[in-house]
């Protein structure tokens, strides 16, 4: 138990990631309001992006721009650019998802005059 606790406290980033992830899922599942569901989805997506950034962080590393001989370099002195590139792409995907989903919610609201899922589903079925 003590080992587990110390392992947890040494990795606060990952604890935050797990909390955000589960919180987002809870909001998505529990709230009947469409916009709140979207917020839940957004939190889940952001938590994964946070995870990507968290595990790629390095102490004392600098910008990975190198000229000259690559073979002689000390890898620990440079930040790994790949996870950050993935992060940027994932954010773009996230924004696109948000755009489409807001358009859908707006169309739903215009059609049914409500943002409450229970109410809308009742009227559909």
């Amino acid at each position: 138990m003590a080992e587990l606790l110390s392992a947890l406290f040494q990795r606060p980033n990952f604890v935050v990631f797990v909390i955000l992830f589960l919180w987002g899922i809870y909001i998505m599942a529990a709230h009947p309001n469409y916009v709140k569901k979207l917020i839940g989805l957004y939190i889940v997506q952001t938590s994964v992006i946070f995870f990507l950034v968290a595990f790629s962080a390095k102490n004392g590393a600098t910008v990975p721009i190198v000229s000259g001989d690559m073979a002689m370099l000390d890898a620990s002195a440079f930040a790994n650019p790949l996870p950050h590139v993935l992060t940027v792409t994932a954010i773009v995907v996230q924004v696109a998802t948000l755009g489409v989903s807001l358009a859908l919610v707006a169309a739903l609201y215009r059609q049914y005059g409500s943002l409450d899922e229970d109410e809308v589903v009742q009227r559909v079925e």
Binding site: Y34, V100, S101, L104, V105, A107, L108, Q111, V120, V121
Partner: peptide
């Protein structure tokens, strides 16, 4: 729309 949102 309802099902598209669920799918999303």
């Amino acid at each position: 729309l309802v099902y598209a949102f669920r799918y999303l």
